[in-house]
Nucleic acid binder design. Structure first.
Lengths: 353, 353
DNA sequence: CTGAAAGCGCTTACAG
DNA sequence: CTGAAAGCGCTTACAG
């Protein structure tokens, strides 16, 4: 069962255990001839290292940090919850994690936070990033210390992180459009869109995916220009209320950004029929709105899966293992009937994708 | 970081390492007084056993078996694929798995297969079950040998297995109904349903969930009685073709069962508009049909997650650990835009829910 | 450049 | 009922 051990390899190669270990872990200081013999033996025996044993021996500790935007944003609170709950689970496997709060949307704040990480002796960090070359220097410094870096939910400058974990926002927008289109049964309609800001990459991308699908497959639907909300519930509330009252021809609402509480409140105060309503991220209030029938569809990026993948990836990176193949993450569609039982939607074992 | 070890516990309790171990693992033969002292020390120190070290030491091997229905059923082929790919991953952790083929839908065949397992020295088995008291005897025998048993996808008599992993089919049917209803934009319509057979519990349940939602929230939609297909693509093909030609008032198709290839073929041969179409299980042909626009929605039970959970649960059971909390599995909704990149939809780490 | 040895946190005989 | 010791497969000083 257990396959050959390093001992078997060393024997087969005719070298000592220590030497076999050296070539396997590229510790250097080994004669070419020995390297060849060991490599050969590994090949022949099909040796595969026992990671559990290795970690036990090494007393490997994984010191991880997550840089997460602060604020009352329900989505990031959910992310926080997933991190803590997984960290809890993983404390038995010698991983410790620290969640570092960063001012949302501020390049400067992020720059400084990354800088502060540098002295801290972390092994790996996951960062909810921004696209700005101002971040390159602190990221490079961090990396120079041997810290592994990945982007989470929102990417960092690509050359300065080992991987990115997040959904494709164009796909998320397309998915929203598909369901919105469906809901019109090939009838005509007008869709009011909302966005936080259009210079933030992800909102623009979602909107674009949305437009692409509507244009291609639902040509009878008109998309009204997005109302910009700064993701502020109060702005959403006013805008939605106003749209609801002043434009009875609207057949759908689509908010690509946050601040949904305001949108939901505006809808719930309206009597009679309402527009078909799609928004992003399953959090407590969107969950409740789905159940109450105030909205129809939530497109969710599965933060539980994202967090789980972040841990898996970071550990693999730290162990210098091949990183497991990470398929693109696809957004999940929720209606009121397939809602997860647990409001936190906990990663159980999480194990599940 | 690493917390207290059993050594610390033994010291604190004033007993030997071996004795501490005995009470922790309930090996018996320990004085009440010692037990109390150890329990107390564990409590005080917050000791938590290092599973990796335990397994390393024990040379624990997990011999698992999966009993899966044979046949060309694409869904079960997908299940098989997930099992093999995960098994591959887990071979490094000393788990071996054998997939045992069983004739589909046959209580006798299942009875015999379970019987044959009894001599085989497995530690845990996952069985795609049937509800029949004929299975109780062989299950009881198997269990008497210390084999852990769980139901997978379709349950066994509940008293004779430790857990069941599968979706709630009523929920699956409700979800299908929600999307079907949505697609009518509060217009009227008529839905042709298809089912393999109505005595098979899961089909009846899906249909019921479907009916419940339509009746409650989409009263203008009429549900036609299901055409029974035995999940045979040829039957589906003929029935769908016939319905398409003879009843132009149909606005939707819903197949609760398998045999979708036939349904898809019938639709793809039809010119002009077609009914809105919802079916179950994402497999190669339903995936392609979604992409091609022959169907609109696939409700999927996430076999990757199910298989992953089966492994996790079986190992926990075998280790006599508390089984991780398993939230009810919710069906996933796929449209052509949020389809997984990998046709096999591999459980990466799978880790994800 | 190479080896022998201790130790990671546990389990499993074995001997009292 | 209790303990001392070997061993699981590795890594890490330490000594050549």
């Amino acid at each position: 069962m257990s396959g050959p051990t390093l001992n078997d390899v060393a024997d087969a190669a005719g070298v000592s255990y220590a030497t076999a270990d050296r070539v396997l872990n590229n510790r250097g200081n080994v004669a070419q001839k020995s390297i060849a013999k060991v490599r050969d033996a590994v090949e022949r025996l099909g040796y595969v290292r026992n990671v559990a044993a290795a970690n036990l021996s090494r007393k490997r500790v994984y010191r991880l940090a997550f840089l997460i935007p602060t604020g009352s944003n329900a989505f990031f609170n959910r992310i926080r919850g997933h991190i803590t709950s997984l960290a809890d689970h993983l404390s038995a496997e010698n991983v410790t994690v620290e969640i570092v709060d960063v001012s949302a949307f501020s390049v400067e704040a992020l720059h400084d936070s990354i800088g502060q990480l540098t002295g801290r002796d972390f092994d790996g960090v996951a960062i909810v990033g921004l696209q700005s070359d101002q971040l390159e220097q602190p990221l490079a410094d961090l990396r120079a210390r041997g810290v592994h870096i990945i982007g989470l939910v929102s990417d960092l400058p690509a050359a300065f992180r080992s991987a990115y974990i997040g959904i494709d926002n164009i796909v998320a927008g397309r998915t929203a459009a598909r369901l919105t289109g469906m809901s019109h049964a090939s009838g005509a309609g007008a869709i009011q869109t909302f966005a936080g800001a259009l210079d933030a990459g992800d909102h623009a991308e979602r909107l674009q995916g949305f437009r692409d699908v509507i244009a291609a497959d639902f040509p009878r639907l008109e998309i009204l220009d997005p109302i910009l909300t700064k993701d502020d519930p109060a702005v959403l509330y006013d805008a939605a209320r106003n749209a609801l009252h002043s434009d009875p021809t609207l057949t759908a609402f689509y908010n690509v950004g946050a601040g949904n509480k305001g949108l939901i409140n505006a809808i719930s105060e309206t009597k009679g029929t309402r527009p078909f309503c799609v928004l992003h991220e399953l959090v407590e209030h969107s969950h409740m709105a789905l159940v109450a029938g105030h909205i129809d569809v939530v497109i969710d990026q599965r933060p539980d899966v994202e967090v789980l993948r972040a841990f898996t990836l970071l550990r693999a990176l730290i162990d210098q293992r091949d990183t497991p193949p990470m398929l693109p993450l696809m957004p999940a569609i929720f209606v009121q009937d397939n809602l997860p039982a647990d409001p936190m939607n906990n990663p159980m074992k999480a194990q599940d994708t």
